[in-house]
Nucleic acid binder design. Sequence first.
DNA 1: CGATTATTTCGTCAATTCGCGAAATACAAA
DNA 2: TTTGTATTTCGCGAATTGACGAAATAATCG
Lengths: 111, 111
Amino acid sequence: MTKEQLTTAFKALGDPTRLAIFQCLRDCCPTAAFEDDGRIRPADGPTVGEVCCQITGAEKITSTVSAHLKELRLAGLITMEKRGKFVVCALNPTTVAELAAFLGEKTNACC
Amino acid sequence: MTKEQLTTAFKALGDPTRLAIFQCLRDCCPTAAFEDDGRIRPADGPTVGEVCCQITGAEKITSTVSAHLKELRLAGLITMEKRGKFVVCALNPTTVAELAAFLGEKTNACC
DNA sequence: CGATTATTTCGTCAATTCGCGAAATACAAA
DNA sequence: TTTGTATTTCGCGAATTGACGAAATAATCG
């Protein structure tokens, strides 16, 4: 991970709305595996609309949350995939693990 | 750690200069344990001036780096202590570990 | 096809941030 | 006390950010 990728990722997490999204995706399961019409939705995460509802209480996704999701995606922290009319998202565990590893790297032994 | 503390800490790391300072403090030892006059300097970290030199190449600490150090301190990521004419600093391993732990928390089992 | 639903992009505005230099503060040495 | 050194605070301007609503895009439904 380059220094620039690290700063981008940390900056993405350094906003209350985006951190809430991050926690939502980390802690929450997709709220349903089936649509109203019975079709199954790939269970890799909630739709962006569902995430927005959890975060802001809004019924539909807002442009603000959409922008935050985009930033998290560009930072490599989440994945987003189109599923018909919906966009589902999920954490990118690889990047998260790399951030944790960066923080966990040992301090130089002589200190 | 509250949500606000988490965002503050991540935001503090989300700037290239501050991340460089963080890496410097994590990876570097104090460059010397003795002053010119022979007095020992507490070996808990380099002076802020030494950190600034490593980061920017400047001979004396700049107001920019001073402000970044303050933000890292307010975020709980580093400690700063006055030692006579100097201010020495060091990582706060507790906060760093808490951030790493937050990122490392397991995804909900059902996902 | 048109209508509806889910989402993103765009434009704007207020607020924040970053870097800089000058001035202020703190401490030590002479 | 005066001088010098290390550092912080202040004030400013340029650039970025976050929130919001309106418009655009994309896919499904009828």
